[in-house]
Each structure stands twice: as structure tokens, then as C-alpha cells.
Design a protein around this nucleic acid. Structure first.
Length: 178
DNA sequence: CATAGGGTTATTG
DNA sequence: CAATAACCCTATG
């Protein structure tokens, strides 16, 4: 092994690979490793084993994610609004204030996806991302997949606006002198 | 100061 | 229930 350290970028590619090539995918580690220039299939497989160990540790309660205080989950209209303005639509200030996902939560989410499959938000919430409800997990998944699709599109579809001056002028030149 | 991103809530299958 | 749409707040350029 040349370098056993995993950078943030490598980890991200690894996690994306886990999702793209599902658990029963043949040659899984090879294919994931193909996406990570600096890692071999063996290293990927080993990295996954470590991940499972972490999961075991989390599940046995060694690591505890902070459980969010839900009592403070509601927005107070006074908290940030200028008291000056006359009331316009004081409809339902009952919406919960958004709590951004932490990196750890997201990691657990990906592992849960791995273990219970896309769609079983209930199990993922109950056994992996205990700090989030099933609805929150589903919502997170929705955004997660939407974003992935968007990135995929950006890679695939090229607009003419992506052309650089260099490319444009060179092809222009070759087209002009037929 | 508009808007993309990322959350929650409502609606639908 | 899950999937999807609508909605909404906030960070950011």
C-alpha cells in the first residue's frame, strides 16, 4: 500500500461510488476504484471494512451523536423580524427551524442507504441516523438525489457557451481555410 | 438585493 | 407508508 490516507475528495468519490454501484454489483470494488485515481480495488474494499467497523461502534453506543433538543424547534417571529412592520400575514408561524445536516449525519445516511436500501427511510432513521426522523431522512434523500442528477447533467450536456476562446478560434481557423 | 441551496410541510400514489 | 411537489428561510455572490 502506497498511501493509506483518504482525503476528503477521495472519501466523497468513494461514497458516490457506493451509491452508484449497489451492494450486489459484480466487481464492485474494481469499479469504484476506477473512479478514484489514487486507490486500488483492495484499498477500497479495506476502506469499506473500516467503515463497517465504525458502524458497529456507533450501533453499540460507543459513539453518540448529539440528540437535538426538539423543544426549541419552532421559530419565534420576534427573534429576527423587525418589530416595526405592521402585520401582513401572521398565518402559521408553526414551521420548524431548519437544522442543517452535519457531515457525520450524511455519512450515516449513506451507510444506511447501503444497509437498508433506498426507500426504507424508517429503518435508516431508526438504526442509522437516529438524530433524524424518517421524514427528514426522506427529504434529505430527495435533495441528495436531485443534486446528483444535476451534477451528472452538467458533466454530460455541453452547451456552446462552454467552448473556450482557444477552441473556438482554432476550429474557426481550420474551417475558414478549406 | 436577487437567488441557489437546502431545509420543512403539503399533496399525491 | 413512500414519492413527489410546493413552499420557505438563509447564506452568499
Amino acid at each position: 500500500m502506497v498511501n493509506s490516507r483518504w482525503t476528503w475528495e477521495e472519501n466523497k468519490q468513494f461514497e458516490d461510488g457506493l451509491v452508484e454501484f449497489a451492494g450486489d454489483c459484480p466487481n464492485r470494488w474494481e469499479r469504484i476504484a476506477a473512479r478514484i485515481a489514487t486507490k486500488t480495488a483492495a484499498e477500497v474494499e479495506q476502506h469499506f471494512a473500516v467503515l463497517l467497523d465504525d458502524v458497529a461502534a456507533i450501533e453499540s453506543g460507543v459513539i453518540e451523536l448529539p440528540e437535538y433538543d426538539e423543544s426549541d424547534g419552532f421559530r419565534s417571529p420576534e427573534s429576527r423580524k423587525s418589530p416595526n412592520r405592521s402585520e401582513k400575514k401572521q398565518v402559521a408561524p408553526q414551521r420548524k427551524v431548519a437544522r442543517p445536516w452535519t457531515e457525520d449525519e450524511h455519512r450515516l445516511f449513506l451507510i444506511g442507504l447501503e444497509k437498508y436500501g433506498k426507500g426504507d427511510w424508517k429503518s435508516i432513521s431508526r438504526f442509522m441516523v437516529k438524530s433524524r426522523t424518517a421524514a427528514q431522512v426522506a427529504s434529505h434523500a430527495q435533495k441528495y438525489y436531485a443534486r446528483q442528477e444535476k451534477e451528472e447533467e452538467n458533466k454530460k450536456r455541453r452547451s456552446i457557451f462552454d467552448n473556450t476562446i482557444a477552441e473556438t478560434s482554432s476550429s474557426l481557423a481550420s474551417n475558414l481555410c478549406r
